[in-house]
Design a protein around this nucleic acid. Structure first.
Lengths: 271, 271
DNA sequence: AATCATCGTCGAAGCGCTTCGACAACACGC
DNA sequence: GCGTGTTGTCGAAGCGCTTCGACGATGATT
């Protein structure tokens, strides 16, 4: 593998000039730049990531902390991961995966100190999340996908659950539905303080009660089987139910099966 | 951040002794080791990943090359990614994501030369995959999830599609089914040489024809909508069809909807 | 023509670690 | 008591790059 020294010799300039040509941190004359570019091309030079990282104290690497296999890994999570990787790439960064849940803040602290990451993306944030504290203390830049209870001074992107549930309910009431159920994520996720579960539940209740209707919600594991049972429960609680709002992708597949099983056509009899 | 030099001073030994205590590459007396461990703990020392990588020419990083968002990113792919990350972690490795498809062998070659990865995991391998050639030429150790046409000298783990399709067909014929359809991945994936699509198709045909039955297969996009249409097609081709073998997760959800829509109960009327 | 920035380039000092060669200190067999 | 190995430790030389200070060579400014 060709080093920068090789390129320098080949282009008959000093090591540092090659470095400056590459980074643009200082001006380099057009003529020398051409020679250097030619030498780099000829030798197939690629700057060594480790050496660059060590000398510059910047790794060009971002870490994506994501919940190993906790909450079912729906399609949404996967999309986040895939687009984060692609976006990092576009900006010349590497993306490393740190599969740590909310209870593994210590491991994160350790990894951060190894200096491999310039910044962190935190996924599946809990309302009170020790990982946030750890990252904050480490002084590493980070942003969250989702949010904690307190977001003072923190950067995050988030889904507006108040708005989405309100929109969903508005859509259904506009269609004439008055008995609307809500199929949420699991009880575990709720009890762990997983924000989407909690905030969507609140949003739904608000949207429903503000219309003088009765909210019927159910927490449900991320599986088709659980989805069937959950819908059965909802229909027992309110046999007149004609519409469902759902947060739980996996369970939804089971839900449709259960509905069709009961002779309810979608979308004719049930929305 | 404490360096190894700090630890050495603190423990009153030389820098190299600390290194040896850490790596075990040379013996260190029990007494000094205790002092060094104490110093490391007190200073909260973590070896710098970049420096270690530069000096040792090993990055402790593995790259996972995976298809950005090509083939729908089913749950299986996600599981692979998540468990790869966890497994890497367990072995003290980092896992970086390189979102490159079969047509981006050049970009892979570039990244490899940056020396960030000690080895590579290649996913969604095509029967003839330029990435394999690129990695081979780069001399980087790699293994594949899936396989190319020629596997001489290559390491891989793979699904036995002959066996899975045979098992599926055997299961269905044992239940008495004689009109069995096959719901495959998309035509695009087939034409691109995506091995699971091609090999599963072959496996299914073999399993069916060896029983004197007629294979009915359909290529189908990764979506519920496409799944509905595909099942409709299959039933038109053979109205007596009573069972389906499927490779296409997303399409399957649509398939069940279509079947139920036609009054076919699962599993009573249709398997 | 003298003065001063500015430009383009170079050499050298690290970044924090691994690893090689050296070398005391000591144990062993005879 | 002399070779002959072991053990445990140290110093120093890198790994391949970034970045700082220095310095001749221009070109612009009076």
């Amino acid at each position: 593998m060709a080093t920068m020294q090789d390129v320098a010799r080949h282009a008959k300039v000093s090591l540092s000039t090659v470095s400056y040509a590459l980074s643009g941190a200082r001006p380099v004359s057009a003529a020398t730049k051409v020679r250097i570019d030619a030498a780099m091309a000829e030798l197939g030079f690629r700057p060594n990531a480790m050496a660059r990282g060590l000398a510059s104290r910047r790794s060009s690497t971002l870490a994506l902390i994501f919940p190993a296999m906790e909450s079912g890994l729906g399609g949404t999570v996967t999309e986040f991961v895939a687009s984060a990787a692609a976006a990092a790439r576009e900006h010349g960064y590497h993306l490393v995966l740190w599969p740590f849940g909310a209870h593994q803040a210590d491991e994160i602290r350790d990894l951060v100190r190894q200096g491999l990451a310039d910044g962190v993306l935190l996924m599946e944030v809990r309302l009170d999340d020790p990982r946030v504290e750890a990252l904050h203390a480490a002084g590493l830049p980070f942003t969250m996908i989702g949010r904690t209870r307190e977001v003072e001074g923190l950067a995050y992107v988030d889904i507006d659950f108040d708005r989405t549930t309100e929109d969903a309910v508005a859509h259904l009431t506009a269609l004439g539905h008055e008995h609307i159920g809500f199929l949420n994520h699991s009880r575990e996720s709720h009890d762990e303080g997983y924000a989407p579960t909690i905030r969507a539940e609140e949003g739904f209740r608000t949207a429903i009660t503000s219309r003088g209707l009765v909210p019927r919600t159910v927490l449900c594991h991320e599986s088709p089987q659980a989805g069937r049972r959950a819908v059965a429960e909802l229909l027992e609680a309110d046999p007149d139910m004609t519409a469902l709002v759902t947060m739980n992708e996996m369970a939804t597949f089971g839900a449709t099966v259960e509905l069709q099983d009961r002779g309810l056509r979608i979308p004719d009899d049930f929305s």
